[in-house]
Simulated scan of single mutants.
Amino acid sequence: MTFSLFNKNRCSITDELFLELTWDDGRGLEEDSELLDIIEGLDHLSNFSQPISKSLPYLTFQQAELLFKELKQAYGRFQLKKVAIAHMEGKTVVTEGEVYASPFLITEDYENLLLPLIQAILTRSEFANYSYQEKREYFENQIYPVYKQSLGLSDSSLPLFPAEGETLIGSQSSGLALAPKARKQPDIGDSVPHKQSTSLKKFYLFLGFLGVLTIVNIVCVFFAFTQLSNQSEKVNFLYQEQKNTQLIISTKNEVDVFSRYFLPSYYSGKKENLVDFLSEGDAKFTQPKEGILQSVILEKLNYDSETQKYTVSYILSVKKGDKSSSVRLTFDVKASDSSKYGFVVETEPKESNYLKN
Rank of each mutant, 00 (worst) to 15 (best):
T92R: 13
L80G: 05
I85D: 01
L17V: 04
G90P: 03
Q62Y: 05
E70C: 08
F68W: 14
D24P: 01
Q63T: 03
T22C: 01
Y58K: 13
Q50F: 14
L66Q: 14
P57T: 12
S55C: 10
E34H: 11
M88T: 08
A86K: 01
Q50R: 04
W23C: 12
Q62K: 15
E65K: 08
Q50E: 15
F48L: 02
K81A: 13
L29A: 04
M88N: 09
E70T: 00
F18S: 07
L36C: 12
I39D: 04
E89I: 08
F48V: 06
W23I: 01
G76K: 06
G90H: 03
E65W: 09
Y75W: 12
K54E: 15
V83M: 15
K91Q: 10
L42S: 05
L71G: 05
H44F: 13
L42T: 10
G28V: 09
S53A: 12
G28K: 06
F68Y: 14
L42P: 11
L35A: 06
A64N: 06
D37E: 15
S33T: 14
F18Q: 07
F18P: 07
D32W: 10
I85F: 06
S33V: 14
L36Q: 15
L21Y: 03
S53T: 01
E89D: 11
Y58P: 00
G90N: 03
G28C: 11
F61N: 06
D24N: 09
L29M: 13
Q79L: 13
S55Y: 10
S55V: 00
A84V: 05
